[in-house]
């Protein structure tokens, strides 16, 4: 059991290796597709830096793969509210991301006041708050407050969306 868990943990870090490798390859391929004539005023050109960065990423990917396979492991970050004794709680994270995505999809059509309130309420729910009414009141106050605060204080017009004309 323990062994399996530790093997799985090692494997998840290999995903990071894949990500690094992919980013490195993309950076290099993208740079290679740039065509610029050699210019006396810019001997370095726009391709050099991406090649260096892509190379760095690929080297890091290889070294990380070796490191992980030899038992190396990145140490997860600790913090005041972080309890590393239990594994990643996807039941909190996935709904949280859901609330975030919902806001991205809705913000331009229904406006910030509604989508922002949904974002706060949904996030609070995902994080375990079950006082629905109080959460909703705080959410609406926050989103209305920021809407008017940005409009009056900073001159930034957040989208009013469905409530256009009401606000």
């Amino acid at each position: 059991m323990n062994k399996l868990a530790s093997r799985l943990k090692g494997r998840s870090e290999l995903g990071l290796v894949a990500l690094l490798g992919a980013v490195g390859v993309i950076v290099i391929v993208d740079a290679a597709s740039i065509t610029v004539p050699y210019s006396q005023s810019d001997p370095v050109g726009p391709k050099t830096m991406p090649f260096i960065v892509g190379g760095l990423l690929l080297v890091c990917a290889v070294l990380l793969a070796i490191n992980v396979l030899r038992g190396g492991r990145g140490e997860a970050e600790a913090g005041e509210d972080v309890d590393l004794s239990h594994p990643t709680d996807w039941r909190t994270v996935v709904p949280l991301i859901g609330a975030f995505v919902l806001n991205v999809l809705l913000i331009d059509t229904v406006g910030w006041v509604i989508s922002g309130a949904l974002l706060f309420w949904g996030s609070a729910w995902a994080l375990g708050s079950r006082r629905y009414v109080r959460d909703a009141i705080i959410a609406v106050v926050l989103s209305l407050g920021t809407f008017y605060g940005f409009y009056l204080g900073l001159g930034i017009n957040l989208p009013a969306g469905l409530l256009q004309g009401v606000l």
Binding site: V82, D83, L84, V93, A126
Partner: peptide
Amino acid sequence: LWIAAHLR
């Protein structure tokens, strides 16, 4: 997100 995943 990170804290949410490991909330005390």
